[in-house]
Amino acid sequence: MAVATLVEGAVPVDLAMRPCYPRAMATVLGSRAPRDPLLDVKELHVSYGAIIALRGVSLSVGKGEVVALIGANGAGKTSTLRAVSGMLKPTRGTITLDGGEVTGLKANQLVPRGMAHAPEGRGIFLNLSVAENLDLGAYLRRDKPEIERDREQCFTLFPILKERYQQRAGTLSGGEQQMLAISRALMSRPRLLLLDEPSLGLAPQVIERIFSILREINAKGVSILLVEQNAHLALGMCHYAYVLETGELVMEGGGKELLKSPEIRKAYLGE
């Protein structure tokens, strides 16, 4: 694939300076169960002006799967999520959601197709109340009784949100804001939930609680694409994982296989 790109003459400038050229295929560990893909990303390229963030990332998320995307700071994890959810326009590549191509659609056009993205930094509207934040999650929905039921569902998952319901979201703690971000994303009744670093800056007990709830959410049939710096957490709960390094996939495989891999243990698990 990479060689073909070279022959066709479309040589990205930055690649010329990279030592490992032509690009190697990602190492695949273990095998993946045959699946019905909900999200299929092929050869995704993203750049911010002259800076290239992603160079041909391909990944897929099956229906009902939790897929993790791990990697160091600046590897392109957040850029991948942003391109998938329509916050960024990819320069090349295709994104397919449940069989239909959605490349280049804007974020607000992807929400009605079942995509929800809890962005980096939680993206809580600090000027609005907790109630209004939750309502915005259901902005495009008109089925009031069902919205009501989903809101109750969120309160069951995160009872603290009920206590804080009328408060301004800016007064919530970091953990509470993360709970609100996840709940708000669920309010759109997504089929695919994109989560960007749900563990960032939270106390261990809070992280544990959030991840056990993510498992519950997944058990109800919501597919999850999870970006995490905490590789241990992510690999422990996902069905499949991809490892990103400077905008490219270097490894992929089942969560358990990656957890056992010496390279992963050394690079991402601090051993």
Partner: peptide, 9 residues
């Protein structure tokens, strides 16, 4: 940007 993620045009 976050508003667009809520489906707001």
């Amino acid at each position: 940007r976050t508003s667009a993620l809520m489906g707001i045009p």
